[in-house]
Design a protein around this nucleic acid. Structure first.
Ligand SMILES: NC(=O)c1ccc[n+]([C@@H]2O[C@H](COP(=O)([O-])OP(=O)(O)OC[C@H]3O[C@@H](n4cnc5c(N)ncnc54)[C@H](O)[C@@H]3O)[C@@H](O)[C@H]2O)c1
Ligand SMILES: NC(=O)c1ccc[n+]([C@@H]2O[C@H](COP(=O)([O-])OP(=O)(O)OC[C@H]3O[C@@H](n4cnc5c(N)ncnc54)[C@H](O)[C@@H]3O)[C@@H](O)[C@H]2O)c1
Lengths: 219, 219
DNA sequence: TGCCTTTTGTGATGATATGCACATATTTAT
DNA sequence: ATAAATATGTGCATATCATCACAAAAGGCA
């Protein structure tokens, strides 16, 4: 498979394409061109074609892309029909919001459990997701075959919690804390630093008041 | 000023440096090398030196960087002593979490108001931040000189809300909805798509089980 | 003082990503 | 059937970043 060759930026755009194709499918659209996708997603059409070209020759010249075919292809490629179970550590302000949202409704990802050290939270059920004590971490991860954790604890608890996660066999962490986590090299970490995002936006506004440059890739 | 020449990625890392320097300052550290910063922030030391070099010659050979000096320099450069007022549209799950967090405690950014259409929410006070009806948008933006909005409404309301924001004179939007917003070219938008972040993490885990590659820059 | 060590700032190179521009293939209309 | 219109896939130029590697400068120690 072409997997090994896909640029990181492309991998980040594929879910975007997938989501939009679902929408097109839902309204009965049969075909779509890179130009139409470009318009809707605000990505250059050549970039879109290049992205798809990494996966194979998915389109037809003079026609464009068949929505059903492309959708199905991406579904397989992104393994959208396998449900991935994840857990969330730190059921506070942000953690609760993410739990409530859950990603399952529209996606293939499901938060199956929350964890906290606050006795008041342990035992709660948030929109169907149970909150456990941290000492049940390993047990629950194994039960649900969980390999990915969302980390929304206070920054002071970030490293110790991460150590516990690594110990319990996690492989990937989506880190919302500002901490730079130390982990063995086989663990993958993605950082989402909302404070930095906000500050960066403000920085650009203050320093490039008349913004002609294209927006960068965010999220 | 060197402003015009700073790469986007550097601009995103500056707040990171600033935050860590504050920490060093707090524990009384006087000097720091790019190697030490690299270790703590998990960024290549050459990248750090290059980043600083865009701002001037801030270090001294054989010595490193003076923490106080660098901190003060970045404070000025990032205008960390000017408070930037922002508003938040859509006081739901995510919006409430962001409001509660607020960025003011440790940063120069303050959410001064929330907005919603839900009658049950209008008039509320969330940790000191009032929630207004959407028809008071222009008035409140002007009162507090707000130019930046955080958007956390349902995706269905994203474009119409954006139009209202643009109309009311906003210049930058931090967009948490999955919608690709259409705005005049002078408006700057940063997207934070949490679903895509999670999916991308999972994609990389599934496809590169033994991850040797460095993690990319995320937020 | 003089020598060795440390560490910067940056030229050079390599890696990754974007987007133009067009040959090519296919559709659509007449 | 033929021509015109459409839209892909990709070579190539350009842009943006990351990192190596080292001369040069400054510190620190004997
Ligand atoms: N809330 C936001 O909008 C926001 C924005 C930017 C960054 N963040 C970051 O996200 C993280 C969470 O923020 P928050 O506002 O939800 O904080 P919070 O205090 O509301 O929630 C933290 C939760 O973690 C739990 N916790 C504490 N120590 C723990 C431990 N050792 N193990 C397990 N659980 C533990 C607490 O009981 C609490 O429920 C913080 O690191 C914060 O910096 C949050
Ligand atoms: N909650 C999450 O963790 C999460 C994760 C990923 C993405 N998102 C995105 O963030 C957005 C908000 O998510 P949420 O879970 O907080 O939703 P939510 O339904 O809890 O909150 C949305 C809020 O917006 C208000 N609102 C609706 N229409 C409005 C309008 N026209 N003008 C002003 N306010 C309006 C609603 O009254 C509600 O208070 C959504 O677009 C969602 O896709 C949320």
């Amino acid at each position: 498979m072409a997997d090994q060759k896909i640029p990181q930026v492309t991998a980040k755009r594929l879910p975007l394409y997938y989501r939009y194709l679902e929408k097109l499918h839902a309204i009965g659209k049969q075909r779509v061109s890179s130009a139409a996708l470009a318009e809707a997603l605000q990505i250059d059409p050549a970039t879109i074609r290049r992205d798809f070209s990494y996966l194979g020759e998915l389109g037809k010249k003079g026609y464009g892309y068949n929505v059903n075919y492309l959708l199905q292809f991406l579904r397989d490629f992104l393994r959208q029909d396998e449900v991935t179970n994840v857990v969330l550590i730190g059921v506070g302000n942000l953690g609760t919001a993410l739990l409530r949202y859950n990603f399952y409704r529209s996606h293939n990802t499901k938060i199956v459990a929350g964890f906290d050290i606050d006795e008041g939270k342990i035992g709660m059920d948030i929109d169907g997701v149970p909150v456990y004590s941290m000492n049940r971490l390993k047990e629950v991860l194994e039960l649900h075959s969980v390999e990915v954790a969302i980390l929304t604890v206070p920054v002071s608890a970030a490293q110790s919690t991460t150590d516990q996660l690594v110990n319990a066999g996690i492989r990937g962490i989506l880190n919302f804390t500002p901490a730079r986590l130390n982990v063995p090299s086989h663990i993958r970490i993605h950082h989402i630093d909302l404070t930095v995002e906000l500050q960066t936006l403000i920085y650009f506004l203050k320093n490039f008041p008349t913004n002609e440059s294209k927006g960068e890739q965010n999220g």
